[in-house]
Nucleic acid binder design. Structure first.
Lengths: 215, 215
DNA sequence: GTCTATAAACAGATAGAC
DNA sequence: GTCTATCTGTTTATAGAC
């Protein structure tokens, strides 16, 4: 699928993969280019050659993250107008995102990288925001509007969507604490399903509350 | 209130304050003891003198964080048994925590520090978990049980409490992205109230759903 | 307790061989 | 494109003056 077309592309990909892990785990400042190069089975100089330096590598990581996110949550069909269909689409999107973040190792790296960027914003965050995050949020807001009849760009709906998206990311970030309290040794499909079920229950309850004002 | 009793205590406190900021912003690996010392208006050597080194400083920060969290969400009255009172106590605790984290600058530093520790667990995280986090979570679970009639130590309730706690922390962590999408220039009391209101609405809706199975 | 000076290891960037 | 060697600055830790 993504076979390297030109020599050097494989090295680029390996460096980005290693950098994503390093930046996510240790933060940008704490990650060393030497360790990244070693993890990618290459030398330090190749980072400067391929990306112009450490900062260029961060930008390349952001671009990669943006592409991957857009790919997973890619704009599929136009948002349904039927409330029940919109609610189902909302639940499915959130569930997919949750399972993806919790179970795919590469998704974990991406989530950690994004968290780090949020905690200490750099121009790379703008790239991710504009390239992927804003689009997803807007689409979920539109679904929320279709499901409840509320204005999708109202403050309340935008915040509600954030609160649901946030739960997904939180369960990944707080993994160590959650696992300890839940007495889980790891998050495997059964545990991820339990988390997805909790988030879905929160979603359904909130949608019921938002759609209720018929009374 | 916390007047330094012995000389050196003021320096210790200043170093911990600066370290909390540095570790939270740049991560443990990325923070330099020199920058911390400069921020605390002292010299590098005093960190080794007072804390035995960089790692001892992290432990001291964790202890400080643990104490502060326990102080704010300190065990007050015994949990009420009346469902409505329990629900009110739950809502009040969550609201206080949310406003505290979003508005108090020092709370922001603590939240960032904890997030970093979660993303890359160290023995310092155990200290925070055992010293503060577990107690708060257990207490909220007990309140949830009293409010809904469910078993407070069931998997569902424990995860539900995590999902609500997570929203509070998420809105702090994801501040830059949230502010951009909400077109907020900063999170001041009005914005924090809007966030607290969203979380409260999620809580009430979920409690309604959990308490419903009377049908 | 506080500080300066210094040691030893490490960082990122780059020149140049191949 | 890939790599080694090296330059320059910074890191943590520590020895010792005051």
């Amino acid at each position: 699928m993504n076979a390297p077309r030109r020599p050097g592309d494989a090295t680029r990909a390996a460096i980005i993969d290693a950098a994503l892990r390093a930046f996510g785990e240790r933060g940008y400042d704490g990650a060393s280019t030497r360790a990244i190069a070693a993890d990618a089975d290459t030398n330090v100089a190749s980072i400067s050659y391929h990306f112009g330096g450490k900062d260029g590598l961060r930008t390349a990581c952001a671009r990669h993250v943006s592409d991957r996110i857009a790919e997973v949550t890619g704009a599929s069909a136009p948002p349904p107008t039927d409330p029940d269909a919109a609610r189902a689409a909302l639940a499915a999107t959130l569930r997919d995102l949750c399972l993806f973040v919790l179970l795919r190792p590469q998704a974990g790296l991406i989530a950690a990288f994004v968290m780090r960027e949020m905690a200490r914003p750099s121009p790379a965050l703008d790239l991710i925001y504009e390239g992927a995050f804003e689009g997803i949020h807007r689409r979920l807001c539109a679904l929320w509007a279709a499901a409840t009849g509320l204005d999708g760009e109202s403050e309340g709906v935008r915040l509600a969507v954030f609160s649901l998206l946030g739960q997904t990311l939180y369960f990944h970030l707080a993994g160590p604490v959650v696992r300890r309290r839940m007495e889980w040794t790891a998050v495997t499909p059964p545990e991820a399903e339990a988390i997805a079920a909790t988030i879905d229950r929160n979603l359904q309850a909130r949608l019921d509350a938002d759609a209720e004002p018929v009374a």
